[in-house]
Design a protein around this nucleic acid. Structure first.
Ligand SMILES: [Zn+2]
Ligand SMILES: [Zn+2]
Ligand SMILES: [Zn+2]
Ligand SMILES: [Zn+2]
Lengths: 162, 162
DNA sequence: GCCCGAGACGTGATAACATAACACAAATTT
DNA sequence: AAATTTGTGTTATGTTATCACGTCTCGGGC
């Protein structure tokens, strides 16, 4: 199992958490949002994995770090992060993942490997999307789209073949 | 609120439940599957609505009809129906809906109206889909796709405008 | 006819996910 | 200073989903 799959490629993970947190810090300050200690720590927890974490997993880690130990603590922090585009909820897994492209306006699509549990976030062009086309022909107005695919990532396909 | 929105159009609902059940009956017999009383009743319950029902809603109705009253009763019937393409789970809602195009091999996409709770199932061309393209470029093998859009249906847009 | 295994259904119990309601503290507004 | 807003913590509860086990039924093999 690949410990560092982002887009299913190996990468240097050592700086990527710190960089993302610094960037989140900056963008929150710019937008007048409070990236408080719990929220920042929650983002770090998500960034430490390139897979989706359940709210209770996050909660356990927060509690271990001295924050509250009750579900609302985690859910509120996760709500903040998802609301402001710093994290996403993977509906299929009832779990959360740090956004791989924060700052950009994007309709994320996720590729979930059922073998190694890695989750990759792909950029999509909203205007070309299937759902947009359907919406256009039916007159439906989309406010939020969920695009998630489950399957096997390239790494796991290779592993299975050997 | 539109009581009969399928694809957000009015339609004659009187025969549509019975027809769908008869078709399911036929296709199960053909495939050697057992469309047992609980399973058939569960399908009817889903067909009676053009919106998604939670497993516990289904369970309550099953219990009222003399079937078991414990969660596995509903979940097993729903698992059977979803596994064999007679129903789908709407991940965003943690709820289930009868398939609008049973028999066809399809990658369903759903349009969920947050105003009237109607859910429309759209046919999609899997090969043209966004996710397929992403998968192709990344080497990811998709086994199941979730395509769900939340927003406002044409009927509710019109209603809001008046 | 009888045994056996697979599949379906029922039960009680429990796990996993999520929110409601309230108290308190700090920062901001009036 | 008082009121308001925002954030964090708590207890309690609600909602969704699965586990483990016993029973029944319907085949096929003997
Ligand atoms: Zn990384
Ligand atoms: Zn994998
Ligand atoms: Zn109908
Ligand atoms: Zn509507």
């Amino acid at each position: 199992m690949d410990p560092n799959p982002i887009g299913f490629h190996q990468h240097d993970h050592s700086h990527c958490v710190a960089d993302a947190v610094a960037e989140a810090d900056r963008s929150c300050r710019e937008a007048g949002l409070q990236l408080t200690p719990v929220r920042k720590r929650t983002l770090e927890i998500l960034l430490e994995e390139h897979r989706a974490l359940g709210a209770y997993d996050v909660l356990a880690r927060l509690a271990k770090d001295g924050f509250g130990s009750q579900p609302p603590v985690a859910y509120r922090a996760l709500d903040f992060l998802t609301k402001h585009g710093l994290a996403h909820k993977i509906e299929r897994l009832n779990a959360f993942i740090a956004c791989a492209h924060p700052g950009d306006i994007h309709t994320p699509a996720f590729l979930i490997c059922t073998s190694c549990n890695a989750v990759a976030e792909a950029e999509t062009d909203p205007s070309h999307s299937l759902l947009s086309q359907i919406a256009e022909t039916t007159g439906f107005h989309i406010s939020k789209a969920v695009l998630e695919a489950e399957g096997t990532c390239p790494n796991c396909i290779t592993d299975a073949a050997k």
